[in-house]
Computed example of a mutant assay.
Amino acid sequence: MEHSPAYRDARRHVERKIGFAIHLAVYLLVNTGLALVNVLATPDRIWAVWPLFGWGIGLLFHGIAVFLHAPGAAWKERMIENELKKQKKQ
């Protein structure tokens, strides 16, 4: 069964949102575990903030790509459609 381009785009965006949600869940679980290990094993030395910070930067960029990229993609599509209309008029 052939789906429309709009359906394929919507499906792709939903899959990206699900991917981000999984990434966020893994981030929270792993970093909670690291924080517990840190507090229980070496409470005098706090090291769990470093993976939290580093991975957090990656998670931030993942979120930006998922949630802020889509409006840009729609804007790009509108520009392409406008160019096609201009070419048809010539």
Rank of each mutant, 00 (worst) to 15 (best):
M1P: 15
E2D: 13
H3I: 07
H3V: 08
S4G: 13
S4Y: 14
A6R: 06
Y7K: 05
Y7R: 03
Y7V: 02
Y7L: 00
R8P: 04
D9Y: 10
D9E: 08
A10Y: 14
R12E: 06
R12F: 10
V14F: 15
E15A: 12
E15K: 14
R16C: 05
R16L: 05
K17G: 04
K17W: 03
I22Q: 02
H23M: 05
L24F: 15
L24Y: 13
L24H: 10
V26P: 02
Y27C: 02
T32L: 13
G33N: 05
L34I: 04
L34N: 02
L34W: 12
A35S: 10
A35C: 06
L36C: 09
V37G: 01
V37C: 02
N38H: 09
V39T: 09
V39P: 03
L40C: 14
L40N: 15
A41F: 05
A41D: 03
A41Q: 06
T42Q: 14
P43F: 04
I46Y: 15
A48N: 14
A48Q: 14
V49G: 08
V49I: 08
W50Y: 15
P51H: 02
L52Y: 14
L52T: 08
L52W: 15
F53D: 00
F53M: 03
F53V: 03
G54I: 05
G54S: 06
G54Y: 08
W55K: 01
W55L: 03
W55T: 01
G56V: 08
I57H: 04
L59K: 04
L59V: 12
L59T: 09
L60V: 06
F61D: 00
F61W: 11
H62I: 01
H62T: 02
H62K: 04
G63Y: 01
G63W: 00
I64Q: 06
I64Y: 13
A65C: 04
A65G: 13
A65M: 04
V66W: 00
V66T: 02
V66G: 00
F67A: 01
L68C: 10
L68I: 06
A70T: 10
A70P: 02
P71Q: 09
A73N: 06
A73W: 09
A74C: 10
W75L: 05
K76I: 04
R78P: 07
R78S: 13
E81C: 07
E83M: 12
E83G: 11
L84C: 13
K85S: 10
K86A: 12
K86V: 06
K88V: 07
K88H: 11
Q90Y: 11
